[in-house]
Design a protein around this nucleic acid. Structure first.
Ligand SMILES: [Mn+2]
Ligand SMILES: [Mn+2]
Ligand SMILES: [Zn+2]
Ligand SMILES: [Zn+2]
Lengths: 159, 159
DNA sequence: TTGTAAATAAGAATGATTACGATTTATAAT
DNA sequence: ATTATAAATCGTAATCATTCTTATTTACAA
């Protein structure tokens, strides 16, 4: 579990300045592990405590946090990219994403590895896996009918 | 193997008009099975035989072909969506994509199905798989060094 | 040949993201 | 505490893919 102070100390050690807006953005991710946010989400959140804020600042900060592996970018969603706190798992893995609460949950098997040896006429060099569904808590609350899905509304068609 | 005349006959039967530009777009896909094209690719190709062409016409025609399952849309690529001739396989399957020639090759196993029963605390309702690498012919021509990759230059990070 | 709805062109609008010049600010040295 | 400096930020314009609008053209059936 990364904490905000630790992340900011790490950035400062790398020569970056410690601003309130950066603190706010880091806190948003650290306080909601597994949850994904769009740049607009981040902008709206920080705007509530800093009335003058440029979208450019959000994008620059996200880029900074990406470079330091503090957050991860999820492309391939519908229109806008989404970001989440980087998970601590160091080795190759994938995630399942809950369609109701939006949380990402890591899974510790890679379903592609098994295929690699069987594929004789194709050299696999990269792959992505996206799995959507409902996590245990959401499944139970879903028993009857549920509210509409918020994140990842549009599924991604794969090559 | 779908042929152009057959596709146009199908569209006409559904009440759509048969225009030269539609013929050209259908022919591009039918003549290059497995190959993916961006809207701009399609535009450039058709423009060479119809000097006045609107990008909107390309997008509208792609939408029409999508609705009739004549082509498939691949989201999740870098910036622009890509399209290819729909493959005949009726059942659920995935593809591998060659990073050199850009061809999509269907594979007939779904690596996610095996996981579904093992996942006890997550209900999988949808998934996508994207596999990139080099096909047999391209692997051999790649022996030394190769020309730069054209399609799918940016990999997709998965949730 | 002619009427009619469908198709198209041209360009404006949108939404996400990036780029830029001017201004402000965090931080370290004085 | 004051100040110098580079980093950070703002406000806004630019970019790129895609969609929308409206007037005009065209396929095709009668
Ligand atoms: Mn992870
Ligand atoms: Mn297929
Ligand atoms: Zn959930
Ligand atoms: Zn190839």
């Amino acid at each position: 579990m990364a904490d905000v102070g630790e992340v900011l100390r790490q950035l400062k050690a790398a020569g970056y300045k410690c601003t309130g807006k950066r603190q706010a953005i880091v806190a948003l991710f650290v306080d909601h592990p597994g949850q994904t946010f769009s740049a607009k989400d981040v902008y709206t959140y920080v705007l509530s405590m800093y009335p003058n804020l440029s979208l450019d600042t959000v994008y620059r900060t996200l880029e900074l946090l990406l470079q330091h592996r503090i957050i991860e970018r999820l492309d391939g969603a519908d229109d806008a990219a989404r970001f989440r706190l980087a998970c601590e798992e160091p080795s190759h893995h994938h995630h399942v994403v809950c369609l109701r609460c939006g949380k990402s949950i890591p899974i510790h098997v890679c379903p592609i590895e098994a295929m690699r040896e069987e594929m004789d006429d194709f050299d696999i060099v990269d792959h992505t896996v996206a799995i959507y569904g409902y996590c245990r808590p959401c499944r139970e609350q879903n028993a009857g009918q549920s509210r509409p899905v918020q994140p990842h509304e549009g599924m991604v068609t794969e090559p």
